[in-house]
């Protein structure tokens, strides 16, 4: 194991992570490095702990043991001030958007901007407009409440809020689930664009084989309570039965055919 403290290219470093719920062990000695500027796709069967891993990294869930460093700092041992700094630099998109239901889409997007910066209101309005357009929402959606939007639109609005502060690190929990194929493809393109101009690092839990092929630099597969990280090309040759089934099953083949 290389010593990562001196390696500035590693943004997220997970070592020896163990998480368990009661007697059920989800991760057992899991190691993971996410490099700066890469798009990492995390896959795994249902209940293999993909979302739990994400929650542990962003500090929503305390692991049983192990260390998690984000941007060079131990998540569990951060002071409130350090945590705020880190939170400013990451954006999180939850599965169903997790928009604040009592606020309009526009207020949802503006909340982090108002909280963390002191921009003039006119500029905040402009930035909100940009974000709304960026994620492909119609302009009139900005004034609507989350309950008035469809599931796909809520997801886009959630992404707009996650991107509000132009974070350098983006966590996405099944971002394309529930989007139509055109919307999903546009979302992939959007992530690729943003990633280029912002040098974003993206940690993406997904089951969308198309986005895995299209935008992920590396893929992390959660199997047997551990994680296997490699490029798509190399993973195709892995002997592990679950990985084989995943990439060589009927859906995997179709997605691969589309990529090549």
């Amino acid at each position: 194991m290389t010593d990562g403290r001196t390696d500035p290219d590693v943004v997220i470093r997970v070592r020896n992570l163990v998480t368990r719920f009661g007697p059920q062990v989800l991760h057992d000695g899991l190691d993971l490095d996410v490099r700066s500027g890469e798009v990492l796709g995390v896959v795994g069967g249902s209940g293999s702990g993909k979302s739990v891993l994400l929650k542990a990294i962003i500090g929503l869930l305390r692991p049983a043991s192990g260390s998690i460093k984000v941007l060079g700092r131990e998540v569990e041992r951060m002071t409130d001030r350090q945590l705020r700094d880190i939170q400013r630099q990451w954006g999180v998109l939850f599965q169903d958007g997790a928009l604040f239901s009592s606020m309009t889409v526009c207020e949802n997007i503006q909340l982090p901007i108002k909280e963390h910066t002191d921009l003039p209101q006119s500029l905040i309005d402009d930035i909100t407009r940009v974000k709304v357009a960026m994620v492909g929402l119609p302009p009139d959606a900005a004034t609507k409440l989350p309950a008035q939007l469809s599931g796909g639109m809520r997801k886009r609005a959630g992404l707009a809020r996650a991107l509000a502060l132009d974070p350098s690190l983006l966590f996405l929990d099944e971002p394309t689930a529930g989007l139509d194929p055109i919307g999903a493809a546009a979302f992939d393109a959007l992530i690729a664009d943003l990633q280029q101009s912002l040098k974003l690092t993206v940690f993406m839990v997904t089951h969308d084989l198309d986005s895995l092929g299209a935008i992920c630099d590396r893929i992390a597969v959660l199997v047997d309570k551990k994680i296997v990280v490699d490029t798509m090309e190399n993973l195709l040759d892995y002997p592990h039965p679950w990985i084989r089934e995943y990439f060589h099953g009927p859906r995997g083949r179709a997605a691969l055919a589309a990529v090549h």
């Binding site: 309009t104 526009c106 309005d125 407009r129 960026m134 900005a142 004034t143 943003l194 101009s197």
Partner: peptide, 21 residues
Amino acid sequence: ASHRPLLDQVERVQQGTPVTV
């Protein structure tokens, strides 16, 4: 080249659509 996608994105945004009622 790395800035161009973002500049294009912003270029497409319509000016003046109200964000507050």
